[in-house]
Computed example of a mutant assay.
Amino acid sequence: MATHAAMPTRGRPRRRSRTRQHTASAWAVPATLGAAYGLYASFILRNNGASGGRQFWYGLITAVVLAVLCFALGRIQHTLLPLVRGAAYGALTAAAIGLLVGLTGSSVLRSSALGLAVGLGMFITAFYIFYTHERT
């Protein structure tokens, strides 16, 4: 006797919620990274002088920008392929490190080279992790 292909399930059908709940770590990790990055950028700008408004605002702006970019990348990372996800993490890391090195007064070439080197290392590491832990 043939049965129907769609067998009924037990219980009530669950409705899928359109809103996605954010866990505590989804907010805490970008906020912590942003705060640490902003404090370090502010510390570099101080340059053994007195703290001022310029350092405070620059540190606050860099902290907010990095935290927002990290949060946004964390929200969309599951929709990306492992190669693109690794490239996104590498690009974010390269830009962040390049900016910090540029704040020290180094040349543009040195800050670009160091940012590229660290970003390439992050790309390779992130791609390896995401590719080997990919769910099929």
Results as ranks from 00 to 15, higher is better:
35 A>R: 04
45 L>P: 00
14 R>Y: 03
62 T>A: 13
78 H>F: 13
56 F>S: 11
76 I>Q: 08
66 L>W: 10
43 F>P: 00
15 R>L: 07
70 C>R: 02
46 R>H: 01
88 A>Q: 03
19 T>F: 11
87 A>V: 13
21 Q>A: 11
19 T>Q: 02
16 R>S: 06
55 Q>D: 14
61 I>H: 01
40 Y>W: 08
14 R>E: 14
67 A>V: 03
33 L>F: 12
22 H>C: 03
66 L>R: 06
79 T>K: 14
29 V>N: 00
71 F>Y: 15
58 Y>P: 00
69 L>I: 14
28 A>G: 07
55 Q>N: 11
22 H>I: 07
42 S>R: 02
41 A>G: 14
17 S>R: 13
19 T>N: 05
54 R>Q: 12
18 R>G: 05
72 A>H: 03
33 L>P: 00
16 R>L: 07
33 L>G: 15
77 Q>G: 04
40 Y>Q: 01
79 T>H: 10
79 T>C: 02
30 P>C: 07
71 F>V: 01
72 A>P: 01
50 A>K: 01
16 R>F: 04
70 C>G: 02
42 S>E: 01
88 A>S: 15
57 W>Q: 02
26 A>T: 13
86 G>D: 12
72 A>S: 13
70 C>H: 08
72 A>M: 13
80 L>C: 09
67 A>H: 04
39 L>M: 07
12 R>G: 04
29 V>Q: 04
25 S>W: 06
82 P>H: 14
86 G>P: 12
46 R>M: 07
79 T>Q: 12
86 G>S: 08
45 L>S: 03
62 T>Y: 10
36 A>P: 04
42 S>H: 00
17 S>E: 12
14 R>K: 08
68 V>F: 09
43 F>R: 02
63 A>I: 05
34 G>V: 06
23 T>R: 12
71 F>W: 14
71 F>A: 14
73 L>E: 09
81 L>W: 04
63 A>R: 05
84 V>Q: 12
14 R>T: 04
62 T>C: 06
85 R>G: 10
41 A>F: 02
75 R>M: 13
41 A>P: 02
53 G>K: 00
49 G>E: 04
29 V>K: 06
53 G>N: 05
53 G>M: 08
27 W>L: 15
54 R>T: 12
70 C>N: 07
46 R>I: 01
51 S>L: 13
